[in-house]
Design a protein around this nucleic acid. Sequence first.
DNA 1: ACACTTTTTGACCAATTGGTAAAGACACGA
DNA 2: TCGTGTCTTTACCAATTGGTCAAAAAGTGT
Lengths: 203, 203
Amino acid sequence: MPDGANKKTSRIQQRNRHLILDAALDVFSAHGYRGATLDQIAEAAGLSKPNILYYFSGKEEIHVTLLNRLMETWLDPLVEMDETGDPMTELMGYVHRKLDMARDLPRESRLFAGEILQGAPRMHPHLVADLKPLFDQKCAVIQGWVDAGKLAPVDPRHLIFSIWSTTQHYADFDVQVQVLSDNDPMEGARRYLDRLFRQVLSP
Amino acid sequence: MPDGANKKTSRIQQRNRHLILDAALDVFSAHGYRGATLDQIAEAAGLSKPNILYYFSGKEEIHVTLLNRLMETWLDPLVEMDETGDPMTELMGYVHRKLDMARDLPRESRLFAGEILQGAPRMHPHLVADLKPLFDQKCAVIQGWVDAGKLAPVDPRHLIFSIWSTTQHYADFDVQVQVLSDNDPMEGARRYLDRLFRQVLSP
DNA sequence: ACACTTTTTGACCAATTGGTAAAGACACGA
DNA sequence: TCGTGTCTTTACCAATTGGTCAAAAAGTGT
């Protein structure tokens, strides 16, 4: 019984759990929670449906597991923003890290976006318990930089919202971006966003 | 047979069609295409499920009808941007119109976002046929303004992407915004976005 | 080889869901 | 009031889907 974590997980357990979660990330991010089926996940993982349910108690547990793991990764770039560093450098570093994530982890971005879009039915507690404290703390840091005259007087909350939205846009709205772009948009995005935020933050 | 448009639509047809589409907009925008059920739409509309199917041939037709109607509304603010007007005024007007739409039509914004997020399975042709020509044309207009030295040298494509993402964020990620905001965020958003885009566009 | 545990599978279920058929209720002009 | 076409409902169906169960298969240590 792999559900109980009393025994150390075997090699095969680790492998199959990873297979399932990776397949589920594909399917959930492409079709949303309701749109995804266990059969799709099973096929993508190369396992049978009952075998999937041997490792996870149900569809919801797979989804929740993905969401929980995602939260860490997602908050990490913001955590890295250092209060003692140079304000402009720290914030521009954050922008670039977020853009890198949109490029390298589009499935995760879309999974998150889908969950929020539908009212965060499974992640609302996480938002309140994990995201909000970190968000408030970092907003205070930015406000401190503003008050010290090291940044232009911008509202930290909306600044962060705009960093999130502009960067994640390239992952979440990828189809649209592709239709409207002639060549690879990421290099242009990097240049444009660098300029956008540098301008608004310059004191 | 209301499907054939040979006879003029009766009073009751107009009313029920409108009821259904409004209910469907609620349900589809809240749960996505797969997550929405005809029963939910029927209940929200105050009609029976077979009665819904008397007015629309199926779930997909309702969704497609909503998407088609949405396209007009959605592109309208961009259409209004006038080549002969003052560049900064026109662009800032566009920003504010988009933000107004995020405030006043959040269901429409989420319906659109959900469709794009899942790869635009039903709207991809529309993107290519309707959105792209308009987008290219307006990009050319903005590029003209830039070349004339009336705007800072920004990439029009990424400029528009950033206007879309920052404004729609307040509708699509509303739950998150609400969790992280103390008071009503829209007034602050208006001030911040006005500053953000005015800064980056100033020559 | 043997006993024991872990993993995998095939067969099966109950609930949900998109959709249909046909009869009934209703509106309205003659 | 009657007849005709419009609208609505009741009863039903087939497919999908999340999930179960017992038995088979594959490991694993001795």
